[in-house]
Each structure stands twice: as structure tokens, then as C-alpha cells.
Design a protein around this nucleic acid. Structure first.
Lengths: 192, 192
DNA sequence: TTTCACCTTCCTAACGGTCGTTAGGTTATA
DNA sequence: TATAACCTAACGACCGTTAGGAAGGTGAAA
């Protein structure tokens, strides 16, 4: 499927150079075709970009579901902390995570609203599922200091983003450093 | 000073469109001059961009020093929490903060190393000053759970970045929401 | 005090290059 | 035979940059 190869190459280029910085010529070069051939698969640069966003979010969603499902039986702290390791492992080689973060924070101005329409439901779903997870765990075993699970989930997501930025920007070492700094404090503040 | 007006306009454009997306024509238009006139003040786009980074970091550094100095006598939690309010107020109208964050996380590829040379000392200084502040406060009054002040400072900075991203991306409302979610947990985890 | 050279700042015009995109044709697959 | 996938060629638009010159101010020499 050439169309999919174009998409993945595009993700990598958009991640590294941004929407404006990436060029269809260079994407086509890496795929091994000529620039106009891209138009046999996508309507234009915007279409390719939005398809890349959609594809990336869809893939991430599936991976997240798989992770949380596989950790269903684990203790809560292993699950929440393991998520960070999982994120690091997942985003080490592939550039999809970097692309997602870049687009979330700095979408191209002219596609801002359309990007938002793709992202906002994603974040809301994340928040909702996490809130439910915390609440259910608390029902079986009173682990938390507060019963405001929505805010606890939001706090967790905030920290996720904080260290994830460090991951895409400064690499694995500083990421682990940050994680080890912030997690004990956060966890201690969270539980009873 | 026309040269300074160009610089500030450039900051605003680079913040909104990124290095590749911003164009010298549009910057010149907003300043009220023609594009080649920029070359009377800066050697080229790269020079203008790096000057903008330097100027922004220099200004931020001065403002930070002023804030922490003015809060010298305040209780620690007021100082640390007030910093978030201060950040929000400072970055509401001006685009300098957005520019700084964007450049820190997604510098133009070809200027990556030079940008790093400007940013890394800045973050290191922040981390060092904050560590010292926490240690000194603890000497006068035992407030903290742990005595690893370096990691506590790092955790604080991580949270700062996490919510600050929310500020530049989603605006004031979601920023406050996140801050109110994460702060009580963080503070509870930090103190004895 | 005038003159002249110099420098800064701005301009118009134009350069080569890259961008995204389209037209139109070829080839292979279904 | 129709359609999808690719090609070459070329389009207009914009990019950063340079050349070359006009205007105005500054400061030293006459």
C-alpha cells in the first residue's frame, strides 16, 4: 500500500519540520516517487496533513486501549507509573508521538480549528476513562486521599504531558530524571 | 528605535507561525517598511530569529528575578503558587512566552544547536536557583518531606511546563482548571 | 560656516530557488 | 475498457537575499 507509506513518511517529516517546514518534494523523494504522484493519493498538502493527524490519533488510541487492558490486573501504581515507561518505549523510535505533541500544541494556523476537532474528543476521552479507572479502583480498595477523581486524572495527565515534552525535546535520560523527580511527590500527594 | 520594533514584531510572528511559517515580507508589512529594509538591521532571517530568542530569554530572566525578589518575604506556598498566576498574567497579552516555549520544544532544525546553547544555561540557572531557594527555606523552617531539593525543584519545573503548555494551547480557563487539579496533590506530596 | 565624505536607513528592482498545484500523457492492473 | 498510479513539464506565487541608489544626518576639514 503506497498510500500508507506516504502517510508514514509524512508523519515523520511533519514531526521534524512542522507543517510549513515539511515539503512534498522531500516526502516524495523518501518514498521513492515524484512529487505530483502524491496527488493520486491525497488531494493536497492539507489533506495529507489531516490524514496524518487522524491516522496518528487512531493508532495511539488503539495502543492505549491495549496497554490499559493488558494492565487490568496490576496494582494501580504499577499501572500509572508503567504508563510512562510504555510511552517512552513507544515513542523512542517512531516519530508519531512527536508529531502528535507538535500538532497538539502548535498546529498550523490555517488548520487550527480542524485539528482541534480531531484532538479535543481524544483528550476528553482520555480524561473520562482515566477518571473512571481511578474511581473503580478506589471502590475496591480505598487508596486515594481525595475523592475528586476527575481532578486527580487531570493532574496525572498534566504530569504526563510535562515529562513527555521533556522526552521529545531532551531525550530519554532527562525524561527519566524528571519522572523520578516528580513521581514520588505526586504519588505521595495522591494516596491516603 | 526601528530595529527594536522589528524584533518585537518578529517575536509575535515567530510565535504564531513558527520559524518556517513566518515571512519577512509580512513582518516588514506590519512594521511599516519594505522587506529588504530589514537587512539594514539584521543580517538575515536566521540572525533576526536568534536575536529574537536572545531578547526574549533576556527579558524573561529579568522579569523572573524581579518576581522572586519581590516575593522574598512571602510564605513558600504563596511564592510557588503565585508564580503560576504571575506566568499567566505575563503571558496573557504578549506573545513572548509562546515564542519561548515553541522555540524550546520545536526549534528550526538547522538552528537547533545554536538555540540549545541559548536555552540550556537558562534552564540550568532556573533549576539551580530554585533548588537553593527550597534549601534555604527548609533551613529556617522544616517544611519538606524529603531533603532532595534538586529533585523537588525539578518536579516543580515539570509541573510548571505541563500547565504552561495548557496555557499557550488552550487558554486561561483550562490552565486554571489544570492548576487547581495538580497543585493540591503536588503540594501535599511535597511537604511533611 | 560651508563643504564634502561617510554612514545609516530606507527604497525599487530583480535574482535564483522552492513551494504547492495542475495539465496531460503513459503504463499497468482489474 | 475503465481506472488507478505514476510520470514529465510547467504554472504562478512566494521565499530569502542582493544590487544599487536616494535621502538624511553626522562630523571633520576647509
Amino acid at each position: 500500500m503506497k498510500s500508507n507509506l506516504i502517510l508514514q513518511t509524512a508523519v515523520s517529516h511533519f514531526a521534524k519540520e512542522g507543517y510549513e517546514g515539511a515539503s512534498l518534494s522531500k516526502i516524495a523523494d523518501e518514498v521513492g516517487i515524484k512529487k505530483p504522484s502524491i496527488y493520486a493519493h491525497y488531494k493536497g498538502k492539507d489533506d495529507l496533513f489531516l490524514s496524518a493527524v487522524q491516522y496518528s490519533l487512531h493508532t495511539l488510541k488503539a495502543q492505549l486501549a491495549a496497554y490499559f487492558n493488558s494492565m487490568r490486573e496490576e496494582p494501580l501504581e504499577s499501572l500509572l507509573l508503567g504508563y510512562f515507561e510504555w510511552l517512552a518505549k513507544e515513542s523512542r523510535d517512531n516519530e508519531r508521538m512527536k508529531f502528535i505533541i507538535r500538532v497538539a500544541y502548535f498546529p498550523p494556523l490555517k488548520l487550527e480549528t480542524e485539528v482541534g476537532k480531531l484532538f479535543n474528543p481524544f483528550f476528553d476521552t482520555m480524561h473520562r476513562h482515566l477518571t473512571r479507572l481511578l474511581r473503580e479502583r478506589h471502590r475496591h480498595e480505598k487508596v486515594f486521599h481525595s475523592e475528586d477523581f476527575s481532578n486527580a486524572a487531570l493532574a496525572y495527565l498534566t504530569i504526563t504531558e510535562g515529562v513527555m515534552n521533556e522526552l521529545v525535546y531532551s531525550g530519554m535520560e532527562k525524561y527519566n530524571q524528571r519522572l523520578q523527580a516528580v513521581w514520588p511527590i505526586f504519588w505521595r500527594g495522591l494516596i491516603r
